[in-house]
Design a protein around this nucleic acid. Sequence first.
DNA 1: CGGCGCACCTGAGTGC
DNA 2: TGCACTCAGGTGCGCC
Length: 257
Amino acid sequence: MTRVTWSNKKLRAPIPRKLLKEHVEGKILKTIDRRAKYLLFRMDDGAVMVIHLGMTGKVGLFQQRKKIAKHDHLRIAFNNSMEMRLNDARRFGSVVVWSQKGAEEQERKFSAKEGIEPFSNQFSAEVLYHLASKRTIPVKSFLMQSRIIAGIGNIYANEILFAARVHPQTSVNVLRKRDWQYVIEAAQTILTRAIAAGGTTISDFLNSSGQPGYFQVELNVYNKLGSPCPECTTLIKKEILAGRATYFCSTCQRVLT
DNA sequence: CGGCGCACCTGAGTGC
DNA sequence: TGCACTCAGGTGCGCC
């Protein structure tokens, strides 16, 4: 990575310019991993650059000579005429750098406060049942709490609960193990589909088109206020739950008690 | 501690 | 190429 440049705006936090200069510029990018909704760019010396995309962030590969776009906040050039660009209109995203010295410890601490990965063995009816047993928050809020479960945002929380036929308002402590099993299966199916669509988005970036991935995923309830439920034709309802738009079918999704 | 409300920001859409 | 207003895919802080 031959050169790092940035805008003068801060994201969620100021861009760590000094650390990027010291630990990213001039280094060799070895692998890119993901934990929760964070991207981990690992240098071959052990340093790590962590990027979160917030609501509107996008990372793409571009020719260095291509004109920069409004809201490009970070550019990292490679030694082959390409560069990676982080574009983020609302600036809810973030960039953090762990130097090789403390990276392992920092990653452990970071990972410890992020929730269960939906494709891990921990994402089981047993585990979720126990985590939920003493809590009373609505199941939708529970699914969206990144400290408990990683990677499920508002759109997919809505879609998962529709697929599992669970009402978003249901208090988590009333779900039985078999309800959790439905939720888990729905989550894995829907996230798998979403990831497949996301893969298409990455290709679009290279082709300079740039369609957000979720337009390619078929949504059953999210943003479908007043549309007929695909299962029973009842009109989809919308309510605000914990400040977030919540869509559901009041026939298919019953509040458990 | 758990649960909730709200702040952080820009842009798209809608109604007048 | 107006203006005012609402809403948006996430996270984390402060308050009760």
